[in-house]
Write a protein that binds this DNA or RNA. Sequence first.
DNA 1: CGGACGTTTGACAAGGATCAAGTTTTGTGG
DNA 2: CCACAAAACTTGATCCTTGTCAAACGTCCG
Lengths: 251, 251
Amino acid sequence: MAPYFDRIPNPAPCVACPLRRLPVFRANTIEEVAFIEHMRMDQIKVTAGHTICHEGDPSPPLASLFSGWAFRYKTLPDDRRQILNFLLPGDVIGFQANMLGEAAHGVEALTDVVLCRHSRDQLWPLYCTYPELAFDTTWLTAKEESLVDEVLLSVGRRTAAERVAMLMIHLYRRARAIQPSGDDVVHMPVTQQHIADALGLSLVHTNKTLRRLQKFGFFSFRQQQLQVPNLKALEQFAHFAEPPPRPRPLL
Amino acid sequence: MAPYFDRIPNPAPCVACPLRRLPVFRANTIEEVAFIEHMRMDQIKVTAGHTICHEGDPSPPLASLFSGWAFRYKTLPDDRRQILNFLLPGDVIGFQANMLGEAAHGVEALTDVVLCRHSRDQLWPLYCTYPELAFDTTWLTAKEESLVDEVLLSVGRRTAAERVAMLMIHLYRRARAIQPSGDDVVHMPVTQQHIADALGLSLVHTNKTLRRLQKFGFFSFRQQQLQVPNLKALEQFAHFAEPPPRPRPLL
DNA sequence: CGGACGTTTGACAAGGATCAAGTTTTGTGG
DNA sequence: CCACAAAACTTGATCCTTGTCAAACGTCCG
């Protein structure tokens, strides 16, 4: 079954991409952007809750997230699900899967989402002609790995409260980095079930932990609005180590 | 403090590398192997138990594992440790760390280990001149990520017994794939503490689980010798999904 | 022979899972 | 805009998987 989506008529050119203006992303040369645009096949919209890529898909899509949130996940035969990480605007989808030849994980849209679909056939030309972009591509893969490493440390060795705290910190930081306004409250479109599946916890225990941390005043998360009055305190509680800031590539 | 190691006098040329003869690795062209050899600075030996790369190392080594076993790990301030994955001959060390600029994880030798150290300065020339190798490099990073994804699924959603079973299956397969003899018993140089740290379990519970699974006859693991009489049964028990076999690159 | 390290076992504690309602919020059709 | 159903969130009670503590045992090696 093909993923459910609508093609977007006249996508804006990549040079005009609003994401490129954000300081989190590294600047590209004119030629690089031109190649990226050449590589982009189209823009599609996928509605919230739909699957962008199934586990085991033998020809997974290659895309980048233009707007909205999604997540990568794996499941067991009896439906236990682990969310591997969340995808925010600027993140690449299906790179690992295209490299390895088949999707070892699924991807699902959390909100309505717009994707820039890229041609997998241009991947090899990219490596041959634009070593900088090839490098970026590896960088992005390495970054995603280090992100999963961090989650594995949490799930393997942190307590439930620390895990919840880590996730809030992480998503708060990411969401703010791509939010044009400097607003200190961010939209975080996840349910408690998503949080539970991301942290290897049960729904009930996630709820109680969330509740307890909020009573302590560490943050507030209601109606998908996340606010963290004292980020430093929360980071200390969770044993969070700040990664060195560095602009990242955008495909 | 610099890592403890000895330089090996006259390393054999890369063309003669015994690892290249194994079917798990993809064949390289003469030119590729020549470049790899040019990139290789030296071979060093690190003794068992020593650290190859510290967490947070600002200029992490770039190397590949020629012989012996090692592991990647992360720790929390209070010494809780999570092993991210094990490294076997042919695996690359420090790629992620070099891409991102600093090591987000440590690497420690399980046995005496021989590393081929590569020049990080040759990484960019590699991308410019050998797109195939650049591609391989991304492939290896993507593969490692998918491996960590799999571990995260285990630690987040599998029971203790399933986790132990998964690890046995995984290491048994990997060890056999690089073992020249078709022997059905493999050397697995890990302590129960390593297993516990890799699976997010306590030492005691790991021991009891290990013991129980062996009593059921799923495998035998004594004196670092692992034997799995009925791999299929164990795989079914752990909900293991076989990855599509495909020769992987060797740097 | 002694010490360090790894393994094994039992008793007990506890963090987190499961079960079973209820309550609130969101979304949809009339 | 309201009514209703579905989805998401809460809460309390209870169970059980896994962690912690403590001690003994085995093995390797100087």
